[in-house]
Every structure is written in structure tokens, then in C-alpha cells.
Design a protein around this nucleic acid. Structure first.
Length: 576
DNA sequence: GCCGTTTTCGGCCCGACTGTTTTCAGTCG
């Protein structure tokens, strides 16, 4: 059980207690404990081994015992007791944007509503007319939220699916007779969410491999098996499952199988047609010469594409969005090693977990030339945003770290809030002293299209703003993007010389692939950054790179593939 | 439920936004 798992457990206990009607202070303390646990650098089990759990802020005798129980048994009796009174499913109501514990409590206590479906029918049947706090607008928001969530049902975020897939691949690679394991499907194509995890392994003893596959720890249900295929439900986090399909291919058919199971469907359909035109037949088992009925050797994907007179096409491009055209794929499609620095990250000064030095060391380990520290600005009080005075202090601190640490440039910037009226959260004089400025919207996301577009454009035109952070504010599977005229934003950014971020955070991936492609087409510069809140999160840049690749971005389309000197020129150009 | 003492109990994290509430509660970051 990871710290994150334990933190979530306590967060949900707080929710359940609040819905039950417990004292707000008791509830808050569980939330505080959850936050403490989530913010730890060290594994909880190590702290527990030293008997130091009660020393953690917000953790006393009672919670320490509950953590210990979780670590020892993977479950908590207290939670089980709670769910006797408040059904587990009530927690799904809290996923509706705009619906918190108080409203969930009212729905459960007054109307016995505990599921999304039931809530939806109750609203549609007008059953909630007499419930205080549930006016017309609120009900409309809730309905739209339910529909949003129901579309997300069964979709797992790319980051989570990739982590689960990496664990599974590790386990499968150790199995008897397996000589290769690869990811396939939407996961390999880098789609922002995955309905299932598609895996492919090379082995000649399919049945035995499938048999071992179904016994991997974490497999909670076997959905189907045959001699070369197994489908299971896998629990990648407590109470979170995803379907995993493993196919076994022999070495002769590995290429066609990997290609086929990577998809997409439309890409494969085009390939199959190209094969037919050449007198070949391509399916998941083989590439066959129709006339001679001879199976062409295809131990890898390159052989498949070569037989169709195509270059190998990167999986992220396999969406039938132009990848078959002459000149595609671009030779300089963005790759992780092109990234020379990260320009959006937080430290302990605001809501991060690591110090400036720790961020710098981690970035140096990634081989970066430069990073920019961009803590929150004063309006983001809950994120401990920096007052102008504290930012002054940070300027000095970062300059000092920059002097001390060799081989990497450490810059000072900010993630400055774009306020509701489009003004920024710091004066220009202060921004002018920074090396790089990211401007982001964190509040008032539900304002109308014009307001949001105008305030973003206002920020774009501030001479000291170099990038717009997470431009749409969406949270994958959790929050819709704000209303925004993306095209206008892209045009203005292109004209003003501001970059648009592809936020690499696996919950955000914002801009998303289609929008990033549009931005590039309209002449805007993109910048791929992690928005990391801890040194160990800097490596999530790969999610952003994947999104950029799905947007067909080349190295030259992405600002932070440039040298430190060129970045400084980019900043300077906008100021003068 | 935790914390910090005042060693036995009172206080506990902020501020904006939104909808509906005619004076503010609930949600969110």
C-alpha cells in the first residue's frame, strides 16, 4: 500500500464521517492526517517501523493505530463499520463537481439516494424540489456532472494505466517461456484514458503463460481465457480495477500481432486496405501473400510497415489523422530526449513537497540544462501562494542555489494567478525581475466563454507572461474544461509570442492533443512542463511528450527543447 | 481526533465564488 493509497483512505473516511454528520473538527482532522501522509517523502511503513507515526502532524494515537492496521492488513475495520451506516457508493456522489459532503449528506439522509443513477432519476422525476440547497441551477449542474462522470466510467487515466501496466509487464516477463512483453492498445498510443490494458507477449507455450497470467497477485476476476489469450480484472489500487487483456504471440506473428493490437481501428483498416492493394492479407495472426498463401516473416512491426511500403509509424500517430500521407511521420517528431528543461514546478515555498535544491538535483539527474521554479502567487492562499515579499525572498534563495549547484541553471519564476478580471496577481515591476512567468487560471473556472477567453488573452498580452499554464483547467475524468475559445487563444498567443503549455500532469494533459495540434497549426509555440509538486514527479514529463507527439509536434514546436540562451531570448523578445 | 499547553480542555487553515439563502452555506482550490 502506497502513501497515496493510505491518504485516500483517510480522505474517504473524512467524507463518510461528514456525510454521517460527525463533528467538523473530527472530520477535518482526518483530512489533515490524509494531507500529511500524502505530503510525506518517506514511505509510511518505514516511519511505522520506527514507531514514529504519532509524531506526524495530525496523527495521534487513534489514527496511528488505523494506519498500522492498514499497513498490516490492507484494510481498516473502522471503515467497514462506517460503511455499515453510510453505503460506500455515496462516495461516488462526491465526484460530481459542485456536490460536496454536505449535499451528499442531505441526499443520503433525506432521500436515501446513494448512487449516481438513482440521483439522476430522482432529479428527472422532480423528487428533489423540496430539498433545501437544491435549486434549479444546482440541479442542472448536478445533472450535467453526472452525465460527464458516466461518460468517464470505465476509463482509467493514462498515468494510472501505465503504472499498472509496468507492474504487470514486470510480472509477465518473469514467466516461464516468455521472451518479450510489450504494451499495446490505446495505452501504447498514449491516449489520455484507457478502457483496458492491452498487453502482448512472445512465447510458444500460450496456454501455460495464460494460466500463469490469471494468477498474478492483484487479479480479482478472470473474465475469459483460451490458449493464446486471457482477460482479467486487475486491482491496481484499493477498490480500483481495470480490465487487462494479455495475448500471446509466437515469434513469427509477433509483428502483425503487436501492430494489430496497438490499433487504432481506423489506422488498422487503412493498413488492411493497403495490404489488399499489394496482394497481401494482414490480420492479427500474420502477413500473408494471398497468391502463394505464404506467410511473410514479420518478427517486428517494421517488417509489417515495410511490406506495405511505409515507414514505421509511431503509435501515437496511429489515429488515421494523416500518418499515411507522404512525408509523414515527421523526422523530428518530439522525443523525450529533446526536452532540455522544465519551466513549471512548485516547491515547499508554496504547495510543493521538495526544496529548490531537491528539484534542481532531480532535474540535473534527468540531464536538464535548466529549470524554473514557479511557485503559486498570493491569491492562491490555500496553496500557500507567495506574497510579493516572500517572492522577493525566493528570488534570493533561488539565485543562491543556482550559484551553488553546477551543471544546471536554476531560474526563478512564478505561476501567477490570472484573476477574474484578467489582471495578474503581481505587479509588472515584480514580474520583470523574474526569468520566466507562467500565468494560469485557478479560480472562476465556471465563468462564461467570453470572460474566460478575454482574461486569458489579457494575460497573453502582458509583456512579462511567457506561457499560459494548463490553459483549459480541465481534470481528466473529474472536471470539464472551462468554456474557452481555444482558437482565439492560439492566435493571440502566436501573435504575442507567448507559449501555451502542455501540462504533463497525468490528471491534466492540458492542452490536450487536438488543441496542441491546432495551436501549432495557428503558429503558437508550445511548452511541455510537469507542474511537479515534488522532485520525484519531474519524470512525468513523458506524459506531456506523449501528448505532444499525438499532436504531431516536432522538436522546433516546443519551447523547452531550446537552449537556456534561446529561452532567455524568447523571454526578452516579448519584453521589448 | 489532535494539539499544546494554561497538564485537562478549548481551539482547530483561507478566501473567492456561487446559488439561492433576504444574510449565508456549501464547494473548491
Amino acid at each position: 500500500m502506497t502513501n497515496e493509497d493510505v491518504a485516500l483512505e483517510f480522505e474517504q473516511i473524512a467524507d463518510l464521517l461528514e456525510i454521517k454528520g460527525e463533528s467538523a473538527f473530527r472530520v477535518n482532522n482526518y483530512r489533515r492526517a490524509a494531507r500529511t501522509i500524502d505530503d510525506l517523502d518517506e514511505d509510511l511503513s518505514e516511519i511505522a517501523a520506527r514507531n514514529e507515526l504519532p509524531a506526524l502532524p495530525g496523527v495521534g494515537k487513534s489514527i496511528a493505530a488505523k494506519i498500522q492496521e492498514l499497513l498490516d492488513t490492507g484494510a481498516m475495520g473502522f471503515r467497514a463499520e462506517l460503511t455499515q451506516e453510510v453505503p460506500e457508493t455515496v462516495l461516488t456522489l462526491l465526484e460530481i463537481p459542485g456536490l460536496g459532503p454536505k449535499k451528499a449528506a442531505a441526499l443520503w439522509q433525506k432521500k436515501s439516494i446513494a448512487t449516481l443513477d438513482r440521483l439522476k432519476t430522482a432529479i428527472e422525476a422532480g423528487e428533489l424540489g423540496d430539498l433545501k440547497g437544491f435549486g434549479k441551477k444546482t440541479l442542472a449542474t448536478i445533472l450535467s456532472g453526472i452525465e460527464f462522470l458516466q461518460r468517464a466510467v470505465g476509463r482509467t487515466r493514462l498515468g494510472d494505466a501505465l503504472e499498472a501496466a509496468a507492474d504487470l509487464c514486470g510480472a509477465i516477463s518473469k514467466m516461464e517461456g516468455v521472451t518479450r512483453v510489450e504494451q499495446a492498445g490505446s495505452l501504447r498510443r498514449g491516449c489520455e484514458t484507457a478502457g483496458n490494458i492491452d498487453l502482448l507477449c512472445r512465447a510458444e507455450n500460450g496456454k501455460a503463460v495464460v494460466e500463469q497470467f490469471t494468477r498474478i497477485p492483484g487479479v480479482s476476476k478472470i473474465l475469459a481465457v483460451d490458449d493464446a489469450w486471457g482477460s482479467v480484472l486487475f486491482e491496481w489500487r484499493p477498490r480500483k480495477t481495470i480490465q487487462v487483456d494479455l495475448r500471446v504471440a509466437s515469434s513469427v506473428s509477433f509483428g502483425p500481432a503487436w501492430q494489430y493490437f496497438t490499433g487504432s481501428k481506423t489506422h488498422n483498416a487503412r493498413l488492411a486496405r493497403l495490404a489488399t492493394e499489394r496482394g497481401l492479407r494482414l490480420d492479427e495472426t500474420a502477413l500473408v501473400d494471398v497468391k502463394t498463401k505464404r506467410t511473410l516473416p514479420a518478427p517486428d512491426e517494421e517488417a509489417v510497415y515495410r511490406a506495405l511500403d511505409l515507414p514505421w509509424i509511431p503509435p501515437e500517430l496511429r489515429e488515421d489523422r494523416g500518418e499515411f500521407e507522404p512525408g509523414a511521420p515527421p523526422a523530428d517528431l518530439l522525443r523525450p530526449e529533446h526536452i532540455r528543461g522544465d519551466l513549471h514546478m512548485h516547491t515547499v515555498a508554496s504547495d510543493g513537497r521538495s526544496t529548490v535544491e531537491e528539484m534542481a538535483e532531480a532535474a540535473r539527474a534527468l540531464g536538464y540544462q535548466y529549470i524554473c521554479i514557479t511557485d503559486h502567487s498570493q491569491s492562491s492562499t490555500i496553496a500557500n501562494g507567495l506574497t510579493p515579499e516572500r517572492l522577493e525572498g525566493m528570488i534570493a534563495e533561488v539565485r543562491e542555489v543556482d550559484r551553488k549547484i553546477a551543471d544546471i541553471e536554476v531560474w526563478i519564476g512564478t505561476e501567477v494567478d490570472i484573476r477574474a478580471d484578467g489582471s495578474l496577481d503581481y505587479e509588472d515591476e515584480l514580474l520583470a525581475r523574474l526569468d520566466f512567468v507562467v500565468a494560469s487560471i485557478h479560480s472562476g473556472l465556471s465563468k462564461d466563454l467570453k470572460t474566460n477567453t478575454d482574461r486569458t488573452i489579457a494575460a497573453i498580452h502582458n509583456p512579462y507572461v511567457n506561457a499560459i499554464g494548463h490553459p483549459t483547467g480541465r481534470m481528466i475524468n473529474a472536471r470539464k474544461p472551462m468554456q474557452l475559445d481555444i482558437e482565439a487563444i492560439c492566435r493571440e498567443a502566436a501573435a504575442a509570442g507567448a507559449a501555451l503549455e502542455i501540462n504533463a500532469g497525468p490528471y491534466r494533459l492540458d492542452l490536450k492533443d487536438e488543441h496542441a495540434r491546432l495551436a501549432r497549426d495557428l503558429g503558437a509555440m508550445l511548452v511541455v512542463c510537469t507542474d511537479a509538486h515534488g522532485a520525484e514527479r519531474l519524470d512525468r514529463i513523458t506524459y506531456g511528450v506523449t501528448t505532444a507527439r499525438r499532436a504531431w509536434l516536432r522538436k522546433q514546436d516546443v519551447l523547452n527543447t531550446r537552449s537556456a540562451k534561446e529561452i532567455k531570448q524568447f523571454v526578452q523578445a516579448k519584453r521589448t
